[in-house]
Simulated scan of single mutants.
Amino acid sequence: MTTRDLVLTALFAALIVALGLMPPVPVAGLPVPVTLQSLGIMLAGLILGPVRGGLAAALVVLLVVLGLPVLSGGRGGFGVVVGPTGGFLLGWVPGAVVTGWIVRRWAPGPWRRREAALALLAGLAGGIGAVYAVGIPWLAAVTGMGLSRALLGSAVFVPGDLIKAVAAVLVARGVRRAYPIEMR
């Protein structure tokens, strides 16, 4: 891993943390709030690729485990990881990896319409699909609410995550045009 890789990984971890400065929006009936940090996960995968994007997400998770208040609302600590939101937090790593892998494989070019559409699909698959695949079963297990209720309750996050995926593609497209970064 080069110095540039380390700097980009740390930069995107800091971006994910900075997006946590926006206060969380509570959702009635669920112990999982809406945050902007999932936007950072999508951006990390779309701009850095699977390895560096996944490492940026893993670095944030490590900071949380170590007790630093880097999550939205100033939360942090091992208790957050083993709590209801822990699965979504742990899902950030595969979310960034899946997003980065898809975009590196299918949309590495200048992101015209076709590549931008594929990048959006990458953001949806990783930022929503992979994160939810870990988060929803975890939520069901920790709260005892059952998988179907956790799945139904988590559906309220989908519209906001769709908007975040579109925003991530627009931002990533501009960043990639202004500052081409080799995806790793």
Rank of each mutant, 00 (worst) to 15 (best):
L8S: 09
L8C: 05
A13Y: 04
A14F: 02
V17W: 04
L21K: 00
P24R: 08
P24I: 07
P24C: 07
A28P: 13
G29L: 05
V32E: 02
P33E: 00
Q37S: 01
Q37V: 03
L43N: 10
A44V: 10
I47D: 07
L48V: 00
L48P: 09
G54D: 09
L55G: 14
A58C: 06
A58F: 12
V65I: 14
P69F: 04
V70M: 04
V70C: 06
L71P: 04
L71Q: 05
F78N: 00
T85D: 01
G86Y: 08
F88E: 02
L89I: 15
G91W: 06
G91K: 03
V93Q: 13
P94H: 11
A96H: 09
T99I: 05
G100A: 01
V103L: 09
A107L: 08
G109F: 04
R114M: 11
R114D: 13
E115T: 13
E115A: 15
L118S: 04
G123R: 08
G126I: 10
G127V: 05
I128L: 14
A133Y: 09
V134W: 13
P137M: 07
W138D: 03
V142G: 06
R149Q: 02
A150G: 09
A150F: 01
G153H: 02
S154P: 02
S154C: 06
V169Q: 06
L170H: 12
V171R: 06
A172R: 11
G174I: 10
G174M: 08
V175T: 12
A178P: 12
I181V: 15
